[in-house]
C-alpha cells in the first residue's frame, strides 16, 4: 500500500485539503471524496468526455489526471460553473432547445461549449462540431447541441456588439 499524499486543491473557488492515495484519479476524488457527482465516469480512458472539468480554465479529462496532479491547482466542475452563473446562458439555451436527453454527457458537453466560446466570436457549425469531437452523446444526435451553442455564440456576440 502506497502512502497517502496531502493535496490542496481549489475546487469551485474553495480551498480543499485532503489526504489521497496517489492512484486516485481526479474524477474519483471529485465524485467520491467531495461528492461532486455532476462529473461523470464514462470510459476512464479519455475517450468520451463525460468527465470533463475545467482545470486552470481549460477543459481536461478528470479520468486522465490524478488527484495529486491537481495539487495547488484550480478545478471547476459543473456544480461550480452552475452556481457562479458563468454558463447560465448555455444552460438556458440547452434547456430551450432540448439539447440533452439523459443528461449524462451534458456536464462535459457544457464544459466543452464553454471553452469553445471562450475566445469570443461566432464559430461555424463545423467548428462547433469539431470542438465537440471528444464528447460522446448517445441520445441527441448532436444537432440540438450544436444549435444551442450556436445560439449562445450569436447572443454573446450581439451583446458584445451592443455594449460597444
Amino acid at each position: 500500500m502506497s502512502e497517502q499524499v496531502s493535496i490542496t486543491v481549489k475546487v469551485n473557488g474553495s480551498i480543499v485539503r485532503r489526504m489521497v492515495e496517489p492512484r486516485l484519479t481526479l474524477l474519483d476524488f471529485l465524485r467520491r471524496d467531495l461528492g461532486l457527482t455532476g462529473t461523470h465516469a464514462g470510459c476512464e480512458m479519455g475517450a468520451c468526455g463525460a468527465c470533463l472539468v475545467s482545470l486552470e480554465g481549460r477543459a481536461v479529462h478528470s479520468c486522465l489526471m490524478l488527484a495529486v496532479q491537481a495539487d495547488d491547482l484550480s478545478v471547476e466542475t459543473i456544480e461550480g460553473l452552475s452556481e457562479n452563473g458563468s454558463i447560465a446562458d448555455l444552460q438556458a439555451a440547452f434547456f430551450e432547445r432540448n439539447a440533452l436527453q439523459c443528461g449524462y454527457c451534458t456536464p462535459g458537453v457544457l464544459i466543452t461549449a464553454r471553452d469553445c466560446l471562450s475566445t469570443g466570436g461566432v464559430p461555424s457549425r463545423d467548428e462547433i462540431r469539431d470542438a465537440l469531437s471528444g464528447n460522446y452523446c448517445r441520445c441527441t444526435g448532436y444537432e440540438a447541441i450544436v444549435d444551442a451553442i450556436e445560439v449562445v455564440a450569436r447572443m454573446r456576440a450581439a451583446n458584445a456588439e451592443g455594449s460597444k
Binding site: 481536461v60 486522465l64 466543452t112 471528444g134
Partner: peptide
C-alpha cells in the same frame, strides 16, 4: 491530435 481536452494536457 485527439480532441481539445486531450490537447490541453
Amino acid at each position: 491530435v485527439a480532441h481539445p481536452a486531450i490537447r490541453n494536457l
